[in-house]
Design a protein around this nucleic acid. Structure first.
Length: 895
RNA sequence: GGGGAAAUAGCUCAGCGGGAGAGCAUCCGGGCGGCAUCCGGAAGGUCGCGGGUUCGAAUCCCGCUUUCUCCA
């Protein structure tokens, strides 16, 4: 069959259809942020969402699946960021086609499917295809994968089957766990596409042999000691990059020339009014922008915001790199937001979530563009100064330390600095700079602990295989239940019983206790059976099938197998529900007041308060906060009855229910509706009608991270207590200043006004007082070698007043020296002044220092004004008497 | 998670142990041919918060908060 050109969209849907027709469930792409996986920054392969399925931790209602998975490779192990744009194949964002078998079919069928899809459905020429198999590995005690070789020989001549080493053809999920040999299907593009070297062969770095599809045969389980044991039900994991396949089918030499990416480059051409394909340097920039715009659009859609940490930082780096290349192309105004818009247009068919967040992506991108241009402006100034200094001292090379400081502290791109330096005929000591970067990397790596997601402890995984829980928390607050297991300690050891006073975690066969989820804290309450009382302090659910009740036995003995009466603390549950429903109302209100870009970024629903993090750029204005409070309270006063329904996910989404990206939802979801106001997917507990909330009050508003704001609020009794407390403070404050609470502002204004008046009055009086003493002091001026010296102890305590007096004396004196001393408790303060005409001969600072030493202290200052202090007031007269000598000594030294 | 910076007038920033400043903006007065014009003057500050060192801290040290930035 002839190879036919196919669009990216056609290949994508063709792939899905092909496998769907062969019994595979079409599973949607999982978000780019993997859930509960501390090892990964981003989803970087199709199998990521099935990890737990492969290991048996999780069951799915199907045994074969097909996906088109959005993937990001940047940061972490696969760091291709610097290569993107320079090659035909590297991407930060790409789509991976994959078919999976979970203990269903194995090698034979995987190979058949792979071959048939490529040669049949896609029409790739069989004679252009090579395959690789695992050559075996003595260290692992494995021989060559003859099984795969035999199966392949049905399609491919022996000469085009190549055995490859473990490095390339053996796959493992981690140091332990499922693993197995792989087999790759490789497409030979012909010698014209190759490097032309005589030893060019499969595995060569050049573009001739393209790895198309990797089939992983998961057949072993690797234990801690490295031993491989065959899995009873081996699985299949395959992955093929959509962009590569599209490039081959569309007969283009680069992924960037496919209809998946070229339209984005076309937009860049329009923006820059420069053609693609003429200047290799510009081409790199255009490819970078196209790739990074895709990554940006998808990452932002999945809830990531540019920041200086973690995933957000990777996004920022991607975005800023794109922006840099925009500048290289001569784009001065923000442009990336527009390019991401193009990405949305192109991809929204396959990824509808893009369309929903189109404006949001644009705003986030624009915001980052503006921020980056500010960073650049500041950096440019610093860089100019730096280079000017180098020019001044005729240095030729900018030191690594300077480059590093500019980059590390101010985020100034090195390539930009390089350009600026070369314009001034300066070089960069890049070796030293790299050295410094390497040091920083080591430092950071040493303290790396994980991405923040917590892995499910192994002990609990085992339990899920034999235990499950019947959830009753939405129907009841109490129930009879059987204690299935009791776990104690960090390692969650199973014990037969807990004695009085002991603490542990209880698993019940059914429970009315709501486990912490969706930000709502777990229920508290008690478990009782005749003579035994155990207090439930918290309830959690580390894996869906297990609800752990943290208990402490208050009386009697709690044993495994016992039947207990489980009673939830209803009042705790009730106040928590108020906060949870209020959270929904606030979320809806925020979106009405601030806009649709508001998305939940974190939430805490406790019995005494609620805390809500959401994406928004600027601090909320007082008016906005008020408006949100009003909107929520209006809903409360309307006393709307909540509607809670279980429905299909698709239907829920089509009614416009708010879902959180990154949350794993089942096929059936719970939808909580406040009529005409809020619809959210939610598994939490809520009030029956909004009136129960009573009162909603926001108590604080602030930022958590760049682009994320936090609101804390109270409801019901808590809100009332808060209001009353504020009222009391207000009343007390009013009482203090003898005003009524409502007139407090006015009164305070008056008081501060009076204070200011009084302060001024004091100053006026002081200077008048000083003026009075002024003449006397001048009269008492002594003559020391022709220089008039005024010296006196004054009754002014603050140095400022003394300086003012000194200034007047100096003015009156015209030429001379002023020395003032004052005493406050056991402390001495000196102010010394020398008129300008004498500063070449006398230094006020030195006089101050000498006088201070005489009174047990130290001091100094400028030649014309200085201050000093001391701790021995009794020696002031003594010091003053020595003043003429001090002056003379200085005069003599200068002469 | 680890490192480097920053926080001073409404805004942009200088000052970096010894009298809190500049430019822009604001207000008042004057000049003027009403549109990027000048002159004079004024008002505006808990120098982020809290400790410490010092005779003395905006300035040095420590902690906290917020922001920027690099690395993971």
């Amino acid at each position: 069959m002839a190879m036919t050109s196919k669009s990216g969209n056609e290949i994508r849907s063709g792939f899905v259809n092909y496998f769907a027709q062969r019994g595979h469930s079409h599973v949607g792409s999982s978000p780019l942020v993997p859930k509960a996986d501390p090892t990964l920054l981003f989803t970087n392969a199709g199998m990521v969402q099935f990890k737990d399925v492969f290991t048996g931790k999780e069951k799915r209602p199907y045994s074969r699946a097909v996906t088109v998975q959005k993937c990001v490779r940047a940061g972490g192990k696969h760091n291709d960021l610097e290569n993107v744009g320079r090659t035909a194949r590297h991407h930060t964002f790409f789509e991976m086609l994959g078919n999976f078998s979970f203990g269903d079919y194995f090698k034979e069928q995987a190979i058949d499917y792979g071959w048939e899809f490529l040669t049949g459905a896609l029409g790739l020429p069989a004679e252009g295809l090579w395959v690789t198999i695992h050559e075996g590995d003595a260290a692992m005690g494995l021989g060559p994968d003859e099984e795969a070789r035999t199966l392949w020989r049905r399609y491919v001549p022996e000469s085009r089957i190549v055995a490859c080493s473990t490095k390339d053809n053996f796959w493992a999920m981690g140091d332990t766990g499922p693993c197995g040999p792989c087999s790759e299907i490789v497409f030979d593009q012909g010698p014209a596409m190759g490097c032309g070297r005589s030893d060019c062969a499969l595995g060569c770095d050049c573009d001739r042999y393209l790895e198309l599809w990797n089939l992983v045969f998961m057949q072993f389980e690797r234990s801690v000691n490295g031993a491989l044991t065959p899995l009873p039900r081996p699985s299949i994991d395959t992955g093929a990059g959509l962009e590569r396949i599209a490039a081959i089918l569309q007969g283009v030499s680069s992924n960037f020339d496919t209809d998946l990416l070229r339209p984005i480059i076309r937009m860049v051409e329009e923006l820059t009014e420069k053609p693609y394909g003429y200047d290799p340097r510009l081409d790199v920039s255009m490819r970078v922008i196209a790739d990074h715009a895709r990554a940006t659009a998808f990452l932002v859609t999945d809830g990531i915001l540019p920041s200086n940490e973690g995933r957000g930082y990777v996004l920022r780096r991607i975005l800023r790199r794109g922006l840099r290349h925009g500048r290289l192309l001569g784009l001065k105004e923000p442009f990336m937001a527009g390019v991401t818009g193009r990405v949305v247009e192109l991809m929204q068919g396959a990824y509808p979530e893009l369309a929903d967040s189109r404006d949001y992506i644009g705003r986030v991108t624009l915001n980052e563009e503006e921020r980056f241009s500010h960073t650049l402006d500041v950096g440019l100034r610093l860089a100019e100064e730096l280079l000017a200094r180098y020019k001044l001292i005729d240095s030729l090379t900018v030191s690594g330390e300077d480059i590093f400081r500019l980059y590390d502290t101010y985020g100034f791109p090195v390539d930009l600095l390089r350009d600026m330096a070369s314009e001034r005929n300066l070089g960069l000591d890049e070796f030293d700079f790299e050295q410094k970067m390497a040091e920083q990397r080591t430092r950071a790596r040493e303290s790396w602990v994980g991405s923040g997601e917590v892995e499910v402890p192994a002990r609990l995984r085992d339990l899920t295989t034999r235990l499950s829980v019947e959830p009753l928390w939405h129907q009841a607050v109490q129930a009879e239940a059987v204690v299935e297991a009791i776990l104690v300690g960090e390692e969650r050891r199973a014990v037969p019983a807990l004695a009085e006073g002991e603490a542990g975690e209880i698993l019940l066969n059914r429970t009315p206790f709501y486990p912490e989820a969706g930000g709502q804290v777990g229920d508290v309450g008690r478990l009782t059976s005749d003579g035994t009382v155990a207090e439930v302090l918290d309830t959690r659910r580390p894996v869906p099938a297990l609800v752990l009740h943290s208990v402490r036995v208050r009386r009697g003995r709690l044993t495994t197998g016992a039947t207990v009466h489980a009673v939830v603390d209803a009042s705790h549950r009730k106040v928590t529900a108020k906060n949870h429903t209020a959270t929904h109302l606030m979320h809806a209100a925020l979106r009405r007041v601030l806009g649709d870009h508001v998305k939940q970024a974190g939430s805490l629903v406790a019995p005494d308060r609620l805390r809500f993090d959401f994406s928004h750029w600027s601090p909320l204005a007082d008016r906005e906060v008020e408006r949100i409070e009003e909107l929520v309270n209006e809903q409360v006063w309307e006393n709307r009855t909540l509607r809670i329904e279980i429905m299909d996910l698709d239907r829920a989404l089509s009614t416009g229910a708010m879902a959180l990206f990154g949350e794993k939802y089942g096929e059936r979801v719970r939808v909580v509706t406040v009529p005409d106001f809020s619809v959210e997917l939610c598994g939490g507990t809520h009030v029956g009608a909004t009136g129960e909330i009573g009162l909603f009050k926001i108590v604080s508003q602030g930022g958590v991270a760049s682009g994320v704001r936090r609101i804390e609020a109270f409801t019901g009794p808590g809100a009332f207590r808060h209001v009353r407390q504020e009222e009391q403070v207000l009343a007390e404050a009013a009482e203090r200043v003898k005003a009524r609470p409502l007139e407090l502002t006015e009164k305070l204004e008056k008081l501060t006004g009076t204070t200011r008046e009084l302060e001024r009055e004091i100053q006026r009086l002081q200077s008048r007082l000083a003026a009075g003493t002024l003449e006397g002091l001048i009269r008492e001026a002594k003559d020391v070698d022709g220089i008039r010296v005024v010296a006196s102890v004054v009754d002014l305590r603050d140095p400022k007043g003394m300086r003012d007096l000194g200034d007047r004396l100096r003015e009156q004196l015209g030429s001379g020296v002023v020395i003032l001393a004052s005493q406050a408790g056991e402390r001495v303060t000196w102010v010394t002044m020398v008129t300008r005409d004498l500063t070449s001969r006398l230094h006020a600072g030195h006089l101050a220092r000498d006088l201070a030493v005489l009174t047990g202290g130290g001091g100094g200052g400028r030649p014309d004004v200085a201050e000093a202090g001391g701790k021995d007031p009794s020696r002031i007269p003594d010091a003053l008497s020595k003043l003429p000598d001090l002056v003379r000594t200085q005069l003599n030294k200068k002469n």
